[in-house]
Nucleic acid binder design. Sequence first.
DNA 1: GACATATGATCTGCCAGACAACACATATCG
DNA 2: CGATATGTGTTGTCTGGCAGATCATATGTC
Lengths: 173, 173
Amino acid sequence: MATNPETTHERCRARREGDFGWHVGTLLRAYEAAVAEVVADVPHGSRGYQVLDVVVHGDQPTQVALAAHLGIDRTVMTYLIDDLVEADLVLREQSPTDRRARRVVATASGRTTLAELERRVRAAEDATMGVLAPDEREVLRGLLRRVACGLRDIDLTGTGGPPVELPMAAVRS
Amino acid sequence: MATNPETTHERCRARREGDFGWHVGTLLRAYEAAVAEVVADVPHGSRGYQVLDVVVHGDQPTQVALAAHLGIDRTVMTYLIDDLVEADLVLREQSPTDRRARRVVATASGRTTLAELERRVRAAEDATMGVLAPDEREVLRGLLRRVACGLRDIDLTGTGGPPVELPMAAVRS
DNA sequence: GACATATGATCTGCCAGACAACACATATCG
DNA sequence: CGATATGTGTTGTCTGGCAGATCATATGTC
């Protein structure tokens, strides 16, 4: 039951270079939709999955760091972790070095759950990039990784911190 | 594919292939932030800008088509266009072929405004991709364009779900 | 033509999430 | 010690997504 390629009559013939924002947005929307299907059982869907992923693989020391890293509001992070704790995926521990901070660590259940989800998410990613050849997907992954990492090195704004000016002053007129 | 430490910034040391979602999300967040600064005067910010862009350059016949194309809810599109009309950027016309539909067309002011904004948005895009060499940016633009266009023509939502017209999910993240 | 169904636009109501402001505990620095 | 900054949680507000209803019109079927 393949969709008729002509149903979306706008097609891509008119797609211009100027649609960069639309391209990124469309990719993210499709990615979110595909991943949401896979991680439907995780509290807060893809958000919860991403938090769990960073908790297991990342090294974000605090909840704020976690929130800033993922672009989530820190007040939302509270409820998000609450629900992950309730689902027995993560635990809140006292940070040994800073009694203000909670260290969020994954439970055994969280780790096994994540491992399974990662497999499926990876498959969903490849499906999302289905039009590209495998080696092209790797190129895209690599470029996105470099851009994202570069952005994090320069711009450490999170939602919540004092607004850090992006190096865009030259952009304005 | 081990994490390639060729980008020797410390903060990226832990970046893995599995962070594809984080990479795309980070890119979109940075892009949105940069563009928002540039298009701050347009009603509804980057949303309004994108609508104006499609109205001028695209060929979306109706408001629903516009909304589906941009991943915006159709009920929001009503208010969005209301404000664009009030700002004298676009007009609502009766569609000559379908008296239910409104054709959204750009005013002269909308066209000149968009032309100026496009320049700045393009600059903001390049700033966002600042870590990449110019030719790499073109590669990234091309790959994103192909993925996005491919997703629009054949929507495959990962786990073999039924083909959907355009399942837009929450993007904000 | 009569009828049923589908589509485009709008409005209403509900809810999740972003955001700011505040409170509290604790860390850090002078 | 005092001032300031940071981590977390709580509250309230506001925007936007989303479902559902409504109305006008188009399309397909008999």
